[in-house]
């Protein structure tokens, strides 16, 4: 379970996250949506202990991130948007390294699980190559295997499907659905609204660091009268594109071609 309680993050005068409170229950996928710079990543980074909240706190499976971040991290798995992994290790070595840190017992059972995850995500053949030779998608898959190997009760995923091939994306979707049904708490951010619409049980939309709407798709539809798709709701709440500017650009582009 994730509970954020009035989270605030301020950088000098700039308030990146302002009084953010939401709860993600076990067995639930919660989608955090918002435009670029709205505070999604900052929120996730606070939950992971990478940033210290200016005010407020959060609890991960009951562990307060201010007072017991190591215990909180022990139950969490995280896949960043752009994973930076140790380039001079192979995927096999890296995942074992992560498993050691999480105290996953060594032995054939662990090796078998790593093997299964690698096969599942089409990484088996490359698992003995150095990570520095991996594409972005492969790095993200490696990061996902590392996040799953210790069977986390809470998963935090930042744009997990971006840059991953359709087969990989479908696999990830199935894995996440499976984990949800086993009671995992999943918080994910994405810019692909179709994914959020299909996968998330509840959605929180944040803009300029503040939660501006939250609920199931049905609840959001009720709130945003006359707008049926998540895209319409999202754009209605955060502001749509500037059609005048677009028209001007296209006009200029048309003139120059």
């Amino acid at each position: 379970m994730i509970e954020t309680l009035g989270l605030v993050k301020q950088f000098n005068d700039f308030v990146a996250v302002n009084n953010l409170s939401f709860t993600v229950s076990p067995g639930e996928i919660y989608g955090l949506l918002g435009p670029n710079g709205s505070g999604k990543s900052t929120t996730m980074r606070m939950l992971l202990g990478l940033l210290r909240p200016t005010e407020g706190t959060a609890r991960i499976m009951g562990h307060d991130i201010r007072t017991n971040i190591v215990a909180a991290k022990r139950v969490m798995g995280y896949v960043p948007e752009e994973p930076v992994l140790p380039e001079r290790l192979t995927a096999w070595e890296y995942i074992n390294y992560v498993a050691d840190i999480w105290r996953v017992p060594r032995g054939s059972e662990r090796e078998q699980e790593i093997e299964e995850l690698l096969v599942l995500l089409d990484l088996r053949d490359a698992s003995d190559d150095l990570i520095e030779t991996y594409s972005k998608g492969m790095s993200r898959k490696t990061s996902l295997v590392a996040a799953l190997i210790h069977k986390p009760r809470v998963l935090i995923l930042d744009e997990v499907q971006a840059g991953i091939d359709p087969r990989g994306a479908a696999t990830i979707k199935e894995i996440l659905n499976g984990l949800r049904s086993r009671g995992a708490t999943i918080l994910m951010s994405t810019h692909v609204l179709e994914i959020a619409e299909q996968m998330c049980d509840r959605i929180g939309i944040i803009n300029k660091g503040e939660m501006i709407a939250e609920g199931t798709m049905e609840e959001l539809r009720v709130k945003a009268v006359g707008q049926s798709s998540l895209e319409e709701i999202f754009l209605g709440l955060t502001g749509g594109p500037d059609m005048q500017l677009i028209a001007k650009f296209l006009e200029d582009a048309g003139a120059s071609t």
Binding site: G49, L50, K73, V84, P86, I101
Partner: peptide, 14 residues
């Protein structure tokens, strides 16, 4: 430190 984010999210104190 962002280059070692993968280490910082592990259950180890900074």
């Amino acid at each position: 430190s962002e280059r070692m984010e993968y280490l910082m999210t592990m259950p180890i104190s900074l």
